[in-house]
Nucleic acid binder design. Sequence first.
DNA 1: GTCTATAACCGGATAGAC
DNA 2: GTCTATCCGGTTATAGAC
Lengths: 239, 239
Amino acid sequence: MSAVATLSSKGQKTRERILEVALELFQERGYEATTMRMIATAAGVSLGNSYYYFPTKEHLVQGFYNRIHIDLVAASKEQLAKARSLRERLRVVMRAQVDVMLPYHAVSGALFRSALTPGSPLSPFSEASGPARRKAINYLREVIDGSGSRFPADLAANLPELLWLYELGLVMFWVHDNSDGQRRTYELIEDSSDAIVRLLGMANLPGLRAIRKRMLTWVAAVIKENAGPLVLEGTSTAD
Amino acid sequence: MSAVATLSSKGQKTRERILEVALELFQERGYEATTMRMIATAAGVSLGNSYYYFPTKEHLVQGFYNRIHIDLVAASKEQLAKARSLRERLRVVMRAQVDVMLPYHAVSGALFRSALTPGSPLSPFSEASGPARRKAINYLREVIDGSGSRFPADLAANLPELLWLYELGLVMFWVHDNSDGQRRTYELIEDSSDAIVRLLGMANLPGLRAIRKRMLTWVAAVIKENAGPLVLEGTSTAD
DNA sequence: GTCTATAACCGGATAGAC
DNA sequence: GTCTATCCGGTTATAGAC
């Protein structure tokens, strides 16, 4: 699933080094201003060689996505173990998500540029992003399962995907958030996590049931249409 | 607000011709595969000269946005005059929006690529997109006002912006929609317009009022944060 | 001051030898 | 797995024509 079919351990290290310096340079100078030539030089390889490991500049961004998810889990694991309510568990994870992305805020626009381009391998819905996506969704499944909350079957089956879309939305908000330290995003997390939990609790209100069913159908369609066959009724395509 | 300070009538025509052939070529060959050199040649100007009218390739995309809104109004005006209910009026406009974009579906990914990049002049929230955005929002205001519906003041004041975000969401869905003729998007329009009207009707349900208020605050923040000072309490910054 | 052209630059990407 | 040489296309510099 990586850019290169098989990679010797030396190759692994070279690849890692290139990604490392690339992410550093992106932070320091921005995405556009960082040239492949700079990256190659800083990593101590030739320009052509860097393309052996990352077929395009954008593939370096995919490396960034993967890195972020690993950091997210590392940053939230202990806190998550201590949180009980779904509200609090959601908050822990979403705060951690924003925390680990912090150093990249200035470049985040460029880094997430391709995120919503259909067909792009960088799209979170793409085949190439499948492993990262499934990891993220499965982590959210843990977030839900670890709370005591129970929901109607159709809702429960799609809740991880639903929360994943919520996470994507939060990230998009954060990208556009220019308040200092992205304070507003943290506020939004407090507020929206609460709203979500309340809405979920009301899912069975008589007037809302029909709308809920329709919305779920469409959310499932969005993900399916974009990401290929996925969970629809609870059977997980686990990683 | 155009790329060039002042433009003679001859200049206007040249600019128009460049945009024309560019949009044709985008449709025929895609965005990436269409080079500035091709566009210049097809328009009968030198490469350097085309940059006099469109400072970057992306500025041609902005020309596309403007074109689309004009087409949308033209395609929906009469039908809109005949539609009474908010539901039907919404449908008319959203269907027309999708209709006029049809020829561009194959390239839409590339064309909307920059749409969600913060800071990009192509972002629908950007300063440069201000005129187009205000036109779109004002058209939606007409859609609402022309229906008999009345809403609580805070909701009414933000409803045009809210529906504009809905329109953006629909366009994003359409971009990713690979069903034939984008059938699913048309279905989504039927379904979601209905859901929206129902939700608006329930805006005063006891359990929902608090959530509604909070959501409105955040929607206002999203638009304000990104698009600069805008309507918050009903005073329009009309075009 | 409005418009047009030619030449060059720069950086992402590729070819192909070793 | 690594390199050098080259291509290609967006963009810019700049000189001049109407």
